[in-house]
Each structure stands twice: as C-alpha cells, then as structure tokens.
C-alpha cells in the first residue's frame, strides 16, 4: 500500500498519469483530483521556483513564461535526486543546449552555465585567500616553483559568446535591459567570492590557461608558460598581482624543489 502510494504519487506529481494516485485518495465535495492538485502544485511550483531564483538572468533573457515552461520540462526530465536543493539545477545549462525552442539564442546555455557556476561559488567551502604579503619578498626563482591552490569558490566559465556582457545587460537589478551585440567575440569569466558576494571578471585567454594550470596543481612557472602559449602578451607578474588582490588563490600547497627535474 505504502509503496503503491509513493510510486503513483511520484508519477502524478511530475507530469505522469495522475489517475492511479487519485484512485487511492478519499474524496468528498473536494474530489481526489483536486486534492492531488495541491501536492502537484507544491512540488512543481517549488522546484520551478528554485530554478527561477537561481537563474535570474537566463529568466530575464527569455521572459517569465518561456522560462517557466522550460524549467517545468527540465523538472520533469531531471527531478532532484537528493533532498538538497542547494545542489539542484546544475544540469539546466546542458538541458537548454538541447532544448529546441532555445535554439534561436545560441548563447543562452552558456549564460545559464555562468549562473550555475555562481550558485556553486556562493556555497563553496570557505578558505582564507592568499594575500600579496604571503608572497612578498620571495625571490623570483622561489616564487616560480610555488604550487598555489585556487580558492574553493573559483569557477572559470569559457564561452564562444559574450556571456559576461550579456549577463551584465540582463542582471535583475537593472531597470532596463542593456543593448548587447550578441555576435561579439566570446568571453571567459572568472567567478569567485569576494567577502559575501559572488563577483564576475572577464579574463583573457592567457589568464584562463594560467589559472587552469594552477588549478591542475602545476607550479607557477609552468602555469605561466601555459598562459604565454595561449596569449603571447600574458605577464605573470600582472596576473599574480591582480589575482592576489581579488582572492583567487587560497594558499600555497607545495614548493617544487630546485633539484626537481624540469617538467
């Protein structure tokens, strides 16, 4: 009985046939279908609401009705598999990428990817950022061998579309949507948490390659080489100064020793 209730309710609540669940429920002047409707609304509207709240820019771009219908279809196809909604919605960007009605907006999935990264960043672990003082006075040849940890809140989102510009133009706190040339070159965005806020910064190809290498656990000199390969103008000192100021690194996790063979 209990198993049958739980199986039929699950089907009825997320887009399936409600008849088997309705048949299990008592009714009087309020019929079983209407009683089930309360639960169906609770489940669907609350989950759609979580997505609406976590993807405000995506929502503003497509409008309320489009977003809610897209979110409803996502909820039916990918309902939460654990009771932690702080971790829900990470699959929405891929769903958007394959959602035919969103095809006229080829950048939409990447904008959603940026918002998903912002949610992850907001709830990521705490860590004391590495400060400029932590690296002050180090000889270049020592500094170059350091292995740094990226702050747990750091995410890097790369796109073939100008997602940072699009995001800024459609932020929910803007009175009017800004004008954007969506055909402009792609952007790579560094997402990180500064004090209580998630902040977005556009970074170049060199910086992106550098941070990716740092994140992979490679010493600064190697990471800088990756940065230079991606962008000949990449400058390690400039990049380090910038990222130390905005808390991109969480600490020193290793120092490659002088006798280590070159990698």
């Amino acid at each position: 009985m209990l198993r049958e209730i739980q199986r039929t309710f699950r089907t009825a609540l997320l887009g399936g046939d409600p008849a088997p669940a309705e048949a299990l429920v008592a009714g009087d002047t309020v019929i079983p279908a209407e009683r089930l409707l309360v639960h169906r609304n609770n489940a669907q509207l609350s989950l759609i609401g979580v997505l609406a709240s976590d993807f405000p820019v995506t929502r503003r771009i497509v409008g309320e009705d489009f977003f809610r219908e897209m979110a409803r279809q996502f909820v039916f196809a990918h309902p939460p598999q654990r009771p932690e909604l702080l971790a829900y919605g990470g699959g929405l960007p891929d769903f958007i990428a394959a959602f035919p009605p969103a095809r006229p907006l080829p950048y939409l999935a990447d904008v959603a990817r940026l918002e998903a990264a912002m949610k992850q960043s907001y709830f990521a672990a705490d860590a004391t950022p590495l400060s400029p003082a932590d690296l002050a006075g180090l000889q270049d040849e020592v500094a170059e061998k350091l292995v740094l940890a990226l702050h747990p809140s750091v995410r890097i989102v790369a796109s073939a579309h100008p997602i940072l510009t699009i995001h800024r133009a459609n932020r929910p706190d803007r009175a009017e949507v800004g004008r954007v040339n969506t055909a402009a070159p792609g952007q790579t965005v560094l997402v990180s948490r500064l004090a209580a806020d998630v902040v977005l910064d556009g970074i170049g190809h060199g910086d992106a390659a550098f941070l990716a290498a740092v994140g992979a656990g490679r010493p600064l000199a190697d990471a800088a080489a990756d940065g230079c390969l991606a962008d000949p103008d990449f400058d390690l000192q400039v990049s380090l100064t910038l990222h130390l100021a905005q808390g991109t690194f969480a600490g020193i996790i290793g120092r490659a020793r002088p006798q280590d063979p070159p990698t």
């Binding site: 009985m1 209990l2 198993r3 209730i5 739980q6 199986r7 309710f9 699950r10 609540l13 997320l14 639960h39 609770n42 489940a43 609350s46 989950l47 979580v50 309902p79 939460p80 598999q81 654990r82 009771p83 909604l85």
Partner: peptide, 20 residues
C-alpha cells in the same frame, strides 16, 4: 523521497496504517 530516489520537495501524506 519516492522509491526511485526522486526528491519531490513537498511533504506528502502517509496512510495511517500499521505498515506505514
């Protein structure tokens, strides 16, 4: 949480039986 692990984000009713 349904038997397939899906979290329905609503507080759903139990029958008041010995089994439940």
């Amino acid at each position: 949480v349904a038997e397939d692990g899906t979290y329905l984000n609503d507080l759903l009713p139990l029958p008041y039986t010995e089994e439940a």
